[in-house]
Amino acid sequence: MSDDTPTRLTYREACKQAIRDALNRDPRCLVMGEDVGLYGGCYAVTKGLLEEFGPERIRDMPLAEGVIAGSAIGAAIAGLRPIAEIMTCNFSLLALDQIINNAATIPHMSGGQFAVPLVVRLATGGGRQLAAQHSHSFEGWYAHIPGIRILAPGTVEDARYMLAAALDDPNPVLIFEHVVLYNDEGDLDPEVVSVDIDSARVRRPGKDVTIVTYGGSLPKALAAADELVGLGIEAEVIDLRVLRPVDTATIYASVARTRRCVIVDEGWRSGSLSAEIAARIAEDLFFELDAPIRRVCSREVPVPYAAHMEEAALPRTADIVAAASGLARPQ
C-alpha cells in the first residue's frame, strides 16, 4: 500500500486505484474497452490512465464486445494479463460466445495447456434511470457457468483489492460492479492490503434472521438491518462477494443459528441466483429452518425508465424489512 492512499474514498476511485496498482506492478497488464482511453471510461473509472500509461496499455476498442472479449482472451492465452471492460453487462451478451465457449472452456479442453488469465469488468444493475437496455443484472446467469469465477464487490475495500486477486487467478474472472455504488464512499483499513476471492462475509452480525445479498443490494440490506433494530429484530447480513463458486459454508453457519433466511437479489426471481441459494438451503439445511425461505428480487419486468417505476421494480429497503420482519415476528 502506497502512502498517498487516502483512507476514505469512493468506490469508483477504489476501482481506479486497483487498476493503476495492477498496471504498475505487472508490465503484462493492460486495459481494453470502449471509451476507456480518451473518454476515461463511461463511469470515469479509467479517467487519467491513458495519460499515465499510454495507448499501448490503455487501449480504446471498437464498439464490438465480441472483439473486446475475443482479443482479450487471445492476449491472455498469449501471456498478457488483460483487464477487459464492458460498459454494462447488458452489452456483454454480445461477448457471451467468447466468454462461455472460449474463456470458460479452453483451459479444460486443452487439458490445462492453455490458461486464460483474463479479467473482465462489467457494470451491472439499475437505479440510475438508464432504462431497460443498460440496467439489468446478469451476474446470476454468469454464475451458472463452470470455468469462470464471478465476483461482486459490494464495498470499497472489495472494489480496491478484488482485482489483484482476480489477476492472480490463472482462470477467467468476471467482476460485476454495481452502477449505483460508484459514488458511494467508504473507508479503507490501512491494515488490509489484500482480500480473498473465495469467501462470503458477515457484514453485520445478528441472531434473528439472515439476510443474504451481494453487490448493489448490500447497502439496502444493511439499511434494512438498521430499521429492523427498531422492530426488535437483529438481522445478520451476509455479503456473498463471490457468486461463483458460492461460499455456502458461511451461509449455512449463519442460517443454522438464525433459522430464518431472506435472500436479496437484484436479478429477476425466476431462475435467479437467489433461487439457487434458496434451493441449497432447502437441500442441506432443511431441518434447521424454523420458517420458510423468503426472497426479495426485482419485479419480473424489463427495468423501467421512469424514476418512480424503476424504484418500485428494484428491491427496496422496505421490501427487505417486510420480508425479514414477517419471518422473525409473524402476525
Binding site: V296, R299, V301, H308, M309, A312, R316, A318, A322, G326
Partner: peptide, 20 residues
C-alpha cells in the same frame, strides 16, 4: 406483452412475499 406482470406502483410499503 412480453412482461409477466404490470410495473408495480411506487407504494412505500409493499406486502411481504406471499406464501405458497
Amino acid at each position: 406483452a412480453p412482461v409477466e406482470a404490470s410495473p408495480a406502483p411506487a407504494s412505500p410499503a409493499p406486502p411481504a412475499p406471499r406464501p405458497a
